[in-house]
Design a protein around this nucleic acid. Structure first.
Lengths: 141, 141
DNA sequence: AAAATATAGTTGCTTAGCTAACTATATTTA
DNA sequence: TAAATATAGTTAGCTAAGCAACTATATTTT
């Protein structure tokens, strides 16, 4: 039975989470996707990070990050400058407008997380985290 | 910290699973995507199912299923006929070629599942399944 | 130093996912 | 029964995800 399979459950749930989160953002009139927010968050937590490193943290490939970064730059949320020490690399930073967006988003993201996770105990969250990390490690090996 | 978040972990793992599975299929020279296989599997387990019902089982929307079904039909893996009792609906079935593909795929899919999941105990799989179902229920409510 | 190789990022092509708007057929309801 | 509404599916337009092939700059090798 396919629907008892762990992989299948993970994929289904990931899709449902994205759908739900995107709906909440849309209902608040916020013009950003969940994926774009994840990219912004990584840049926010890692000043002057380059695209490859963003991709590694989000398990996304180079072309995907390249295009997302361009979207975010066009929207004015991030700033992309060429690295002075290695001109192949870019340095990504959050703009003022991006900072404002992030600050607006935090409480909404918290609310999204609360729905769906609020009935899970800390223990359950810990267990699922451990298992998911283990799965990724096995796949990377 | 975003990377400790349960949602984030689920999404990351789902993406990694898809990447891994797709690579295995490609390395075996099999011309099908993981998502297409999931659709075929649902049709295989539910004779004469329509598109809406496939979508519900896979948490995918109408346009997505519509296009995937057309791809699968073009590839000759499934057959799409108009329902005789309600001509708005279609009835989806697996073709001979599709059956062959499914039979070829099963052992490969099993191998993909084994990698990544083999170090998990039955208990762990049960726990993660329960938690994931709980999350989806919360999001649907 | 020149040639070969590696790294960072982009572009083109494809599938998947989502919304909105559409067509066509069924069902309700007035 | 005619009009209104609901349902199934498609199409258009967008973002995201993947591969392959490309450009440009750095680093290694000879």
């Amino acid at each position: 039975m396919i629907n008892n399979n762990t992989y299948f459950q993970i994929e289904l749930t990931a899709r449902r989470i994205r759908q739900y989160g995107q709906n909440v953002l849309k209902s608040q009139g916020i013009d950003i996707t969940i994926e774009q927010w994840l990219v912004m968050n990584v840049i926010n937590e890692n000043e002057s990070i380059n695209q490859i490193d963003v991709g590694e943290k989000l398990v996304k490939d180079k072309p995907t990050i390249s295009r997302m970064v361009n979207h975010l730059e066009k929207k004015g949320f991030i700033i992309k400058t060429s690295s002075s020490t290695d001109s192949r690399k870019v340095e990504l930073t959050i703009s003022k407008k991006g900072e404002t967006m992030i600050n607006n988003l935090y409480p909404i993201i918290e609310k999204i997380r609360f729905t769906g996770l609020n009935e899970l105990s800390e223990k359950e969250k810990e267990i699922i985290g451990t298992i998911l990390v283990k799965i990724r490690k096995n796949l990377d090996a």
